[in-house]
Nucleic acid binder design. Structure first.
Length: 256
DNA sequence: ACCGCACCCTGAGCGC
DNA sequence: TGCGCTCAGGGTGCGG
């Protein structure tokens, strides 16, 4: 975590030359070669000053502001960063209620163990590579999917959805998942993520796009946060358990 | 090397 | 109305 004063000092006057995504990290490179690394954690939001959404307001702010007053965003106590640009474009805010997000400025040439240890990107996950990563691993297949050193960019919702798509129980020991199942799992994860990107992401509690709009994937999820509701394939109630300290949802009939 | 767990932090929703 | 409890999309650091 880089202190705000240092961010101010070292970013002022710099030009952002490029912006990359590495798994769940956003990496901006400046004209002097330094890199700004952002991670949104659980409740982090990155958005334009022109964005308007009830998700960008606390409950009390929502209650006290009339809908027509909920226009251009005003920083509140959960707003930790404001980027101002001199090209006339809107400002960019980072807001994060739970403060699990991270902001780190790396000097030119400075390495980051976190970034360097990231596995291959989830969007291009290869089934055979996943199979290789599961060999000799006693941990649950879901825990492995969430390990960013194995797959960069897979989060809890998408792990549950991919496991459902592939018909694999989240608690199975990774080493017991077959090559065929790993191929299906990789394909399911790529498909789930591609579809979530198409629909703009999953807005269940905090997520908003940079323009403030909700995503649509919450309407397409099959198991996540559907405990007790009927499976869309077989009508068996979806079960919920805990794996790797994360809420885990699956169909006890469709997933073996 | 690997594994499971406590912990970081704040707010929403629930039962009483 | 308010209290206390549980839970939440992520990651780190520790002990075994």
């Amino acid at each position: 975590m880089t202190p705000p004063a240092r961010l101010r000092r070292e970013l002022r006057g710099r030009t952002l030359k490029k912006l990359d995504r590495r798994g769940k990290y956003l990496v901006g490179t400046t004209d002097c070669g330094s890199r700004l690394v952002l991670h949104l954690g659980m409740t982090g939001q990155l958005f334009s000053s022109e964005a308007a959404s009830p998700r960008l307001l606390s409950a009390t702010a929502r209650a006290s502001l009339a809908p027509e007053e909920q226009g251009d965003f005003r920083p509140d106590s959960h707003t930790h960063l404001r980027f101002c640009f001199d090209d006339g474009g809107p400002e960019v805010f980072m807001r994060d209620v739970r403060k699990f997000g991270k902001v780190q400025l790396l000097a030119a040439g400075e390495a980051s163990a976190r970034l360097d240890e990231l596995g291959g990107d989830a969007l291009e996950l290869d089934g055979d590579r996943l199979f290789g990563a599961t060999r000799g691993r006693k941990t649950a297949i879901k825990a492995l999917l969430l390990d960013q050193r194995v797959i960069a960019g897979c989060g809890n919702i998408y792990a549950d959805e991919a496991l459902f798509g592939a018909g694999v129980r989240p608690g199975r020991r990774a080493a017991r998942v077959t090559r065929r199942e790993c191929v299906a799992l990789a394909e399911a994860l790529r498909r789930v993520l591609a579809r979530s990107i198409e629909t703009g992401g999953t807005s269940i509690s905090d997520y908003v796009a940079p323009d403030g709009r909700d995503g649509g994937y919450q309407d397409e999820r099959k198991v996540y946060a559907r405990a007790g509701a009927p499976c869309y394939s077989c009508a068996t109630p979806i079960k919920k358990t805990v794996i790797a300290q994360r809420g885990t949802h699956y169909c006890p009939r469709c997933q073996k």
